[in-house]
Structures are given as structure tokens and as C-alpha cells.
Design a protein around this nucleic acid. Structure first.
Length: 803
RNA sequence: GCGGGCGUGGCGGAACUGGUAGACGCGCCGGCCUUAGGAGCCGGUGGCUUCGGCCGUGGGGGUUCGAGUCCCUCCGCCCGCACCA
């Protein structure tokens, strides 16, 4: 065997050195004649060292980036770090080491490993979101939103994580638990900073139609925005002379509203009834965690308020209740209850013995479907859908209601009472109020503090020298805002900064970002389906409105990768099933680790990492390397493949066709299998195929494997051709060569395979039918029966229908 | 409950618009080479079989000359949301 063994480490070091020295993957912002393409993987959160999920994400992205470059596109493929955040800070509290130190140590390790993996990154554009040169622009952009009224401060009931001692955005408290640590969240009344994302609810919803995203992600965003159309209807409490508007999606059921319910948090509850029973109930609800309260199945609880409101459609006095199944944060915090046509109201009415009045004809109660109206005065007999608008019009004319739209989406709470984040560039002045820090004074740098531990207020508040500042407006003594920003703010615009990463005068130049954006292919985990992807869309739209960018959506195509599991379970320290990329890169090399990662299965699916499988890919790459050594040593370069086509030449052209199609559809596992087939065929043909065919096949294998195993691909290609594979255009198949001269004609009788015949590729229907009729196996099957029909699919098969 | 997805050998998975089910790899079996091998190479590998074939893509039904693929229905699993009026 020529040349010994495949030394992945030597080969990988060799090519990495070339790419680093020549800055091969750097790309200029200057236009050239190539189309600009932006391939982006979600930026990593640097904690410890990269894990298997990172290897998967960047293996996918790199394959796409390489493929598109070689198809003649000018590809931007940058890297950075989402460096602010809780884990680094919690680590700092434990160890006393500054979060900047541990974060930067982690970044260094990520960078080192990414280089070792041979990911084709434009390192000139690299940054961490914790660096003042980045976050000064995060602050500048925050102020632009502030000036436009899109960032504001107000007191509100907010979600509070008692463990992390900070407030959270609604999105980070899904299911009533802290997204970071899983602790049940509490509700607190606090003054906090918000982004007015709700102003963009409709556009965030509508523009989902303009992006090419996985259906389930689009659905999740739709549900999260939760737009529902209906009406606001006013119920009046005559005794107190107060109007209570409610939101309903079913104004057609108004005649069935037999009681009225308020949320325990509703500010008017005690005004309506100040009794000990009501106080006791409300207190019990408010002190119980939101997880106890949630759940449709839970038995309904509540207390009557001893008051009534007037049903505006029929003047009936209906009783008022306070009950925890009504949520203060949705609609108006009060509802009209229609027990006949709403499951929750039905359960409540049953328990409290309230009237259940059917107003829509249909199945058994509670009935939530459509039907003819009944017990609804002049609307009786009308279909409920028809009456819907008429009732709202009528209410509107009477001044008792109007059409209304409600959203689940809440404004984005961005302030955090934590240390390791981007300072909010605001000064509080007794005279001037909330004053933005002038842009010339940015960045507001994060001060060093002694104690990072949260105490219910930001640790920054302890940095007295830093907090005390003169008001930028009037010069009087004032105090800095001490909250920091949610880290999702940092990642809401990083993809824009990559485009113009070295700009010292602005976060980015519009003409530059317009040249690259929107991201042509975004790749990341589905866990960001709502949070990051919604926030980044919102910022992009706000920027578009301010004329900072010329597009509405940041990510045109989204690919969500599946998780890597081990032993069928998510990796975790407690399960002891954690493995890291180094465990495979160290012994086998990056090419093997990356190629196996993509060979494992469809990248959008979860995949179980099995150590035994790695060996198969390592063997395949080793076989390809040896084949290249062998062929390079034992044959001469005779120029392009000529003469009669051989099976190995045909296989090479077929592989080009298949791998190209597979890369377009993210079927990397299939593409790698195809290169394996090519290598198998070429190995078998080594002894007798013409040298030019063999050399072409092996060079093609190197060329096709390059997006997955770039070092070996480059090595093999160089061995055979002397050229640099990444400078070569993506190969094109010769369709005639790929097709060959003959094909396997499938012969069926009644749809069952009976014979295969070798038929000429261009044969017409008659020829194929005649050939098939000549088959002895067909004759045996027909045996006395009659061929009543013959289906011929040229190039494929002949099927005889026999009776 | 609502929404989304999935179900193919011992395992991971192939099968583009209905047209050869199980590509490729793992594992396993047999052989070669070797002092040895957790190296390398060659061959075999869905089940049953009277060796003619027959049966096979979660179950049942349908459309079709032909269904893993389309339709209906049932079962099972996974993910997301969850008292949103």
C-alpha cells in the first residue's frame, strides 16, 4: 500500500495553515459580478467549550457555504459570540472570577476549536457582543428606539424569577417557569423597560408569509402572537355606575351570557366587594404560583361578588364573580361567561349552579361550533356567522361595543436586574426625567463591581461612582439607569453588524447591509423559534421604519437542526452521557467528526450519536485517501477522461448529479452515501479502468466530499490534479454520460416485478413492449391468461395487465 | 384539548414529481492476510420457502395497471402551546 496511513491531523493542519495565511474565507463588501449570499449559523453562547450541537450547526452551515461559493456566489460566512448572559455571571458569583474573564477564556476555546474544525469563517468580522466596540452600538440603537417611542419605561405586573432575582420577558417565562433555571416565576408590580413589539404584531404575523421557514416555526410564531378578532362589549354595573368592557371572539353568543367574571388581579374587585371571603380568595390566588393556577383541567374556583352587570343585548342583570380562570393579562381582565358555548364557563356554571342557556343550535353542551341562533331575540333562526357582524354593528350604534382585535403578544420586557449585560444608556434626572446618554458619550461601559450577586436590584447600583453622573440635559446631579439589557437585545442585530463589522462611525452602513441582507440561509436550533427569531424580526422592522435598512425580514430561509442525543436521551451531566466534539476530533480528525455528524441522518431530525458509526466514516475517508495515493502514484495525468465511457466514469457523473441535488435539499446523509458509492466503484475499478477515468473519478470524489470533509477533499483533489479544489467551480455532470447506453427495464405482470432486461436508453414504447413480451418469465406468468392492457413507461418499465 | 411532525430490516437511515422497497453505513456471519489485532481486504446478510416462489414499509379500508408515497379511518410515539374568553 503506497504512502502508509491516512494522517488526518497532518492533512488538516496543512490546509488550515493555508487558509489562515491566505485569509481564504474573507470576503470584501465591494460588489463584483458574483451574487452576494449570506450564510449564517446562529451565534454561539460561549460557555465552557463547544458541544455536539455546535458541531452539527456549523457542519451544516459550512457545507452550504462551500457549496454556494463554488457555485459562483460571493458568500459572507461570519462568526461571533453572544457573550453577555446569566451563566457566565452565575459562574462568577461562584468563583469570584470576573465574568469577562471566564467568557473570554471560553471564546478563545470556541475560536480555537472552530479553526480546528476547519469551518470556513471570515474571521476579520469576528466580535463578541460584550465588547464595548459592539455594545456601544447596541446602546445607540436602543436610543434610536427610545427616540421613536419604541422603548419605554412603565410600571406593570411582570414575571420575576426568584432564583435568578431578575425580571423576565413573557417569552422567557413560558409555562410559568424561568427559561434559564426552571424555577416557577412570580408576578411583581415593578417599573421596567419595555420594547413596544406589540405595535408590530400584525406585521410580524403577516410577513411570515414572505419568508421560507419550516411550517412548525411559522405556526409557533403565529400562536405566540395569538391574534384573535372579535369585539369589545360593555357591561355596566348600574349600582356603582361603572362600565366594564370585555373582549369576546363570540359576540354571536351574547344572548347566552348568564354571568360575568373578573380576574383576581382586577383593580376593581375590592371596590365591588370588600368582604373577608373575597380578600381571602384573592390573596390565596395571588400567593399561589402561576403553575398551580394554570391548566384547563383544574377544577374551577371562584367567589360571587354580590353585584350584577347589565347584559347589553337584552338588559338582563347577570351576577358577577371573581375567579382565577380569568387572566388579568389578556383582554380586559374580565369576561362575559357563556356557559352553553364555552367549556370553561360551562365547568364554572356547573359547579356554581348557574344558568346554562343555549343560544346556538347544535350538539350537546358545551357546544362551541356553528349553527342557527336561538333564544336571541330578533336574531333567532339566523346562522351565527351571519349575525356576528350585525350584533357588533348594533352594539356600536348603541355605544355599547365595537369591533376589536386582541393579541397574546405582550411588549418585550428588556431590563434585567443583573450585572453581566449591556448597560441601558439612560440617566434619571429629578428635573428632566428620563434622559438618553448623548451618542458622543457612548458606550456607557459596564463598571467593575465587587459583588455580582443579585439582590433584587441590579448589582450596578452598588457602583456609586459610576451611578452618580451629571444630567446630560441640565447638568444637575443625576443617576444612571442600573438595569442591564436582556441578552436577546444583543442578538437582535448582530447579523447586521457582521456586514459592516469594522465600521467605527455607525452600527452599520445601510448600503452595506442592504448588499448582504437578508440572510439567505439561517441555521440554528428550534429552541429559538419564538424568542430570538421574533425579537430579531421586530428590530429589523423597526430599523426599516427608521430608514436604517431597506428590507423587512432578516432571515429569508431558515433551517432548524435537530438535537443530538446519546443513548436515545438528551445529553446531561446527571445522565453521564455527555460527549464533546473533542472526543472525536482528537482521535479521528475534524473531517471524520463533521462527516459523521452529517451522515448520521437528516439534519432537521434529532439523531442519536453512536460511537460505532464513527469508525465507518473514518474508514471511508481513509479508503478515499489511500485510493488517491494509489491512483496518483500508479497513473499518469493523461488529461480529461476520453474514449469509451466506463462504469467508473459513469458513476462519477451520476454522483455529481446526486450530490448536487442533495446539497440543494440539505440531504447531506444521502450525498455522503453517494460519494461512498463512488469511492467503492472507483476502488473496484482500480485495476482495469483507463487512467484518465480513474483520475477523474477520484478527483471528483475529493471535490464532492469537500463541503463535508474540506481538508481531505482539498488533499485528494490536489494529489490528483495539483489544483485547489475550493478555487474550482462546482462540478457539472454530463447527463448523457450519467445516463449511459442501457438501463434495467423492469417488467411487471399485474404490477409485480417479474423480470429485468437490459434495454437501450433511447428505446421507444413499441421496442420496450416487444422486448418485455419476449421474456420467458412473463410468458410463464401469463400462462393461458390474456394480456388486456400494457403500460409502458419509457426508460423505466413495462407492466402487463393479465386476466 | 389545540397546533405541528413521525411510524420502513437487529440499528441509523435510502427510495426526487405514485413505477425495481431496504441505497449507504453500523452490527452480525464466513473467509483472506497477520506473531497478534479494536488494522486492512474479499464475500454474505428483510422474513418464510417444497428453491418454483410467497410474504413484507404501525393496523384496517379505498383510489390506481401499479401505493412506503395519494385519500379515509384506527393505533402508537415525539415536539410545541396550554383556563388567551
Amino acid at each position: 500500500m503506497a504512502g502508509g496511513n491516512y494522517d488526518a491531523h497532518a492533512i488538516e493542519a496543512k490546509w488550515q495553515e493555508v487558509w489562515e495565511r491566505e485569509r481564504t474565507w474573507e470576503v470584501s463588501n465591494e460588489d463584483d459580478d458574483r451574487p452576494a449570499t449570506y450564510v449564517l449559523e446562529m451565534l454561539p453562547y460561549p460557555s465552557g467549550e463547544p458541544h455536539m450541537g455546535h458541531l452539527k450547526c456549523y457542519s451544516i452551515g459550512d457545507a452550504i457555504a462551500h457549496f454556494r461559493r463554488r457555485r459562483g456566489e460571493r458568500v459572507l460566512h461570519p462568526m461571533g459570540y453572544d457573550a453577555f448572559g446569566l451563566p457566565a455571571e452565575n459562574h462568577a458569583i461562584k468563583t469570584g472570577r470576573h465574568p469577562r474573564e471566564s467568557t473570554e477564556a471560553s471564546i478563545a476555546e470556541f475560536r480555537r476549536q472552530f479553526r480546528r474544525w476547519g469551518i470556513s469563517i471570515d474571521w476579520a468580522r469576528e466580535f463578541g457582543t460584550h465588547e464595548p466596540r459592539y455594545y456601544r452600538w447596541t446602546q445607540a440603537l436602543f436610543l434610536k428606539l427610545f427616540e421613536r417611542g419604541l422603548a419605554y419605561r412603565r410600571e406593570a405586573a411582570v414575571k420575576w424569577c426568584p432564583k435568578d432575582e431578575t425580571v423576565l420577558a413573557n417569552e422567557q417565562a413560558q409555562g410559568g417557569v424561568c427559561e434559564r433555571c426552571g424555577t416557577p416565576v412570580e408576578v411583581r408590580q415593578l417599573e421596567q423597560w419595555f420594547f413596544r413589539i406589540t405595535d408590530y404584531a400584525d406585521r410580524l404575523l403577516d410577513d411570515l408569509g414572505t419568508v421560507d421557514w419550516p411550517e412548525h416555526v411559522v405556526t409557533m410564531q403565529r400562536n405566540w402572537i395569538g391574534r384573535s378578532e372579535g369585539a369589545e362589549v360593555v357591561f355596566r354595573c348600574e349600582e356603582l355606575g361603572i362600565d366594564y368592557p370585555v373582549f369576546t371572539t363570540r359576540p354571536d353568543t351574547l344572548f347566552g351570557a348568564t354571568f360575568f367574571v373578573m380576574a383576581p388581579e382586577h383593580p376593581d374587585v375590592f371596590r365591588l366587594n370588600d368582604s373577608p371571603e373575597v380578600h381571602e380568595y384573592v390573596n390565596r390566588v395571588l400567593t399561589s404560583s402561576s403553575e398551580d393556577r394554570g391548566g384547563e383541567q383544574r377544577e374551577k374556583t371562584g367567589v360571587p361578588l354580590g353585584r350584577t352587570v347589565t347584559n347589553p343585548v337584552n338588559g338582563e342583570q347577570i351576577p358577577m364573580y371573581v375567579a382565577d380562570y380569568v387572566l388579568m393579562e389578556y383582554g380586559t381582565g374580565a369576561i362575559m361567561a357563556v356557559p352553553a358555548h364555552d367549556a370553561r364557563d360551562h365547568a364554572f356554571a356547573e359547579k356554581f349552579g348557574l344558568e346554562i342557556r343555549r343560544v346556538i343550535e347544535g350538539d350537546e353542551l358545551p357546544y362551541t361550533g356553528d349553527g342557527a341562533m336561538t333564544a336571541s331575540g330578533r336574531f333567532d333562526g339566523k346562522h351565527n356567522r351571519e349575525a356576528f357582524g350585525e350584533i357588533v354593528e348594533w352594539l356600536e350604534a348603541e355605544g355599547k361595543g365595537r369591533p376589536s382585535v386582541n393579541y397574546k403578544l405582550r411588549d418585550w420586557l428588556l431590563s434585567r436586574q443583573r450585572y453581566w449585560g449591556c448597560p441601558i444608556p439612560i440617566v434619571h434626572c429629578d428635573a428632566c426625567g428620563t434622559v438618553p446618554v448623548p451618542e458622543a458619550d457612548l458606550p456607557v461601559e459596564l463598571p467593575d463591581v465587587e459583588d455580582y450577586a443579585p439582590k433584587g436590584r441590579s448589582p450596578l447600583a452598588a457602583a456609586e461612582d459610576w451611578v452618580r453622573v451629571d444630567c446630560p440635559s441640565c447638568g444637575a446631579p443625576a443617576r444612571r439607569e442600573t438595569d442591564t439589557m436582556d441578552t436577546f437585545v444583543d442578538s437582535s442585530w448582530y447579523f447586521l453588524r457582521y456586514c459592516d463589522a469594522l465600521n467605527e462611525d455607525a452600527p452599520f452602513e445601510r448600503s452595506v447591509v442592504d448588499g448582504w441582507m437578508p440572510v439567505d440561509q439561517y441555521i440554528g436550533g428550534v429552541e429559538h423559534a419564538i424568542l430570538h427569531l421574533m425579537y430579531a424580526r421586530f428590530w429589523t422592522k423597526a430599523f426599516a421604519d427608521m430608514g436604517l435598512v431597506g428590507f423587512q425580514e432578516p432571515f429569508q430561509n431558515l433551517f432548524t437542526q435537530g438535537m443530538i442525543t446519546r443513548g436515545g436521551a438528551k445529553m446531561s451531566k446527571s445522565k453521564g452521557n455527555v460527549i464533546s466534539p473533542r472526543d472525536y476530533v482528537d482521535p479521528h480528525g475534524a473531517d471524520t467528526a463533521r462527516t459523521y455528524m452529517l451522515f448520521l441522518g437528516p439534519p432537521e431530525q434529532d439523531a442519536d450519536w453512536q460511537d460505532e458509526g464513527v469508525g465507518g466514516v473514518a474508514r471511508f475517508l481513509g479508503r478515499l485517501w489511500r485510493l488517491a495515493e494509489d491512483v496518483a502514484a500508479s497513473t499518469e495525468d493523461e488529461g480529461p477522461p476520453g474514449g469509451d465511457p466506463t462504469p467508473v466514469l459513469r458513476k462519477a457523473h451520476q454522483a455529481i448529479e446526486v450530490v448536487t441535488r442533495d446539497l440543494e435539499r440539505f440531504a447531506f446523509n444521502h450525498a455522503i452515501a453517494q460519494v461512498m458509492e463512488l469511492v467503492n466503484v472507483a476502488t473496484a475499478a482500480k485495476a482495469d479502468a483507463p487512467a484518465s477515468h480513474l483520475r477523474f473519478a477520484v478527483a471528483t470524489a475529493g471535490s464532492l466530499v469537500f463541503p463535508f470533509a474540506p481538508h481531505l477533499g482539498a488533499e485528494v483533489y490536489e494529489r490528483i490534479t495539483g489544483g485547489r479544489v475550493w478555487e474550482q467551480p462546482w462540478p457539472e455532470a454530463d447527463p448523457a454520460l450519467a445516463a449511459g447506453d442501457t438501463f434495467d427495464l423492469v417488467v411487471q405482470v399485474n404490477g409485480k416485478l417479474r423480470d429485468r432486461l437490459e434495454a437501450p436508453v433511447g428505446a421507444d414504447r413499441d421496442q420496450l413492449e416487444e422486448m418485455a413480451r419476449g421474456s420467458a418469465k412473463v410468458a410463464a406468468q401469463v400462462d393461458g391468461g390474456e394480456i388486456v392492457k400494457t403500460i409502458v413507461v419509457p426508460g423505466k418499465l413495462v407492466n402487463f395487465v393479465v386476466r
